[in-house]
Amino acid sequence: MFVNDVTKVYGEGHTAVRALCNASITLQDNEFLALVGPSGSGKTTLLSVIGGLLAPTSGSVVIGDTTLTELSKKEQTRFRANRVGFVFQGFNLVPFLTARENMTVMASISDNSRHDTEERTDQLLEELGLTDRSDNLPEELSGGERQRVAIGRALVTDPDLILVDEPTASLDTELGTQVVKLLASEIKSRGKAGIMVTHDLRMVEFTDRTLRILDGQLLNGSEPAAAG
């Protein structure tokens, strides 16, 4: 994945706010990257641009053989459904769908067949230790279980890129660590590329590399971190 010289400016004239400034990232398959920075530094904006949720003012994002920033909104939506997996801050599962349905719903959204999606869902539920909880609604699951369902939903379409937004924000340290470890292991075992936005520096040790961002600018000197 390539992020090429991406700039995002909100507003115009003297009220313009530069949320991202010439950001460039290269991410290989099988690489898990941490993006850290204080609130308002631009990390969520960068994640949104990479995920095709927000159009940059200039620059481009290339995922595999597709230049995401050249696609129409409709095409970007389809691209996200098929090739990008998201894990959101909090749990953000559909509250009236069971754990299993929260994953199989991707069959209705993506181009994957129902049969393949259901087969992958059952595999993932087993890998994530959720088989016994598959028929439970989110409100009947613990925080860790909910986040594991969210990870399963992100992986069920076998996407090229996994984008993770503050996965530990609603969890205590121990549970947060377990979830990020699990996330890293799932991403690495599948040879996927992953980017995790976090403000929790204890979590970066489970990623391959850390990039720091401040005032919309990626800082030099980010070193590869030890793999978890």
């Binding site: 939506t77 389809r78 098929n82 953000n92 559909v94 509250p95 991707m106 209705s108 959204i109």
Partner: peptide, 16 residues
């Protein structure tokens, strides 16, 4: 709103 935003983010189309 929040739930619909999540569904849109993971690729649900407006038509869906």
């Amino acid at each position: 709103r929040g739930q619909l935003a999540i569904l849109k983010a993971i690729g649900a189309s407006n038509t869906f």
